[in-house]
Nucleic acid binder design. Structure first.
Lengths: 251, 251
DNA sequence: TGACATTTGTTCTTATATCGCACAAAATGA
DNA sequence: TCATTTTGTGCGATATAAGAACAAATGTCA
């Protein structure tokens, strides 16, 4: 790609959109400028453009995103076959085992949920398509890391902010590399309250007809309902059955 | 806003992202150019930029969006208080009545789901935050139209593509204006298989402490389980209770 | 309260990047 | 093969980015 095939304005605008988040529902021009590292004048132009297009709202002081922004993510979810293909399988699986089931893919150091069938939520975390979790401490994340060449997985772990969500969270790179190696060998990952106390999960890879891993599938269960040792016994077989059924459908 | 405060490149790039959708999971440069009305050279630069940033993938022929695009919508969902505030109420409501419950807002002629608690899906439609439905034939859409001044509602109906999803779909503007008037008076809307055969729903407005309508709340039920006449009797009270509880929380 | 300091938003200018056209090259398919 | 369609590139005209300067708002302290 030539230098001139890159549209700086587009990259900057997208960066500004991403600046909104958890702790930043509303941004002033200066805040957006600081978060993105863009010049105030440029950040302002991006925000005004987004407002003009209806993607943001401006009250003279603060900018906030409008639901129109969801069109962008929706373009992906409706354009990509994976979410549609897996959804009915997730629904059946979730019903069968009485727990939530999800499918996610890797994006950098995070897993991104692309489909989910949830049972009544008892957890504090509210997950839906588009939600993100750090890969290193999520069952699907570990499975997806295990599919990469070890050096790549290690590189991603090094890039990750390894923090302890609970006392059980593994945060050592070597410890995690070892864990990922084990998962690669056994073909599934179990997370026992590493992300949130009271939550356990188990995941397997989803491979396409040619054997390439395209996503991960998991089941999450309240710790109060399912003992740590039971996770594998109860859920591994159903997960593998679904993975098997999906295989020819993930061209 | 001055002319020069508008970044054309950003607007064009966003337009290209939106070009991906239902029937267009993968686009060539020429296709993107035709769908957006942009010059081929420009569409190409937008696509290459998106690929460079990791928002799209390019195999030399086709471009497709990557899950990274979901970051953008996620910026909204995590930055906006509404989805987080209503989620626990939705979960409880859904559990209580044994049906799916959702909250949505209006974006142009469409309703956009911002939160949802779903029971096992029996419908062909798979809805999740970010999903869109035409306002004129969705219960939440009618409720939201009813909150607008009549002329504005009529204008939106005129802009809508009024098509018959089922034999029961109302598609006449005057007919719909009349229906919306009725809904404004009674404070709730019932949709009886207008969007999909076998699906009924009922919606009420969510108003904030100052009485402004900020969203709509609904319950959807399989027609086989709940008779048309029963919708109001069974679900209106629970919906209104939740709307009441939420009122002080929607600052 | 009023003067000063600081922060934030807006405007201006110019070097630079982008747009869209026209043309060339490559791929597609009859 | 030749016609047709699609993709890539060079170029002049035009739009945009950056930073500094200016203006307005906000905060601070005597």
């Amino acid at each position: 790609m030539r230098e001139t095939d890159f549209i700086g304005g587009l990259a900057k605008g997208l960066k500004v959109i991403e600046a909104f988040g958890e702790t930043q529902p509303r941004l002033t021009i200066t805040e957006a400028s600081k978060l993105t590292g863009l010049d105030r004048a440029t950040a302002r132009r991006c925000l005004l453009t987004l407002a003009e297009l209806g993607f943001a709202h401006y009250d003279g002081k603060f900018f906030s995103l409008t639901p129109r922004i969801l069109r962008l993510g929706h373009a992906y979810l409706s354009a990509t076959p994976l979410p549609h293909v897996v959804q009915p399988f997730l629904d059946r699986l979730s019903e069968e085992v009485g727990q939530s089931a999800s499918v996610s893919v890797l994006d950098g150091t995070e897993v991104v949920y692309v489909a989910r069938a949830s049972q009544r939520r008892v957890m504090s975390i509210n997950l839906s398509p588009g939600s993100r979790l750090p890969a290193y401490c999520a069952s699907m994340g570990r499975v997806l890391l295990a599919q990469l060449p070890e050096e790549e997985a290690r590189a991603l772990l090094n890039q990750s902010t390894l923090r302890s969500f609970t006392p059980k969270t593994k945060t050592g790179v070597e410890e995690l590399v070892e864990e990922v190696r084990k998962i690669r060998a056994q073909g599934f990952a179990v997370i026992d309250e590493e992300l949130e106390l009271g939550l356990r999960s188990i995941a397997v890879p989803l491979t396409d007809a040619r054997g390439r891993t395209v996503a991960a599938l998991n089941i999450g269960a309240p710790a109060a309902r399912v003992a740590a040792k039971e996770m594998e016994a109860q859920f591994l077989a159903p997960l593998r059955t679904v993975a098997q059924q999906l295989r020819p459908l993930l061209g």
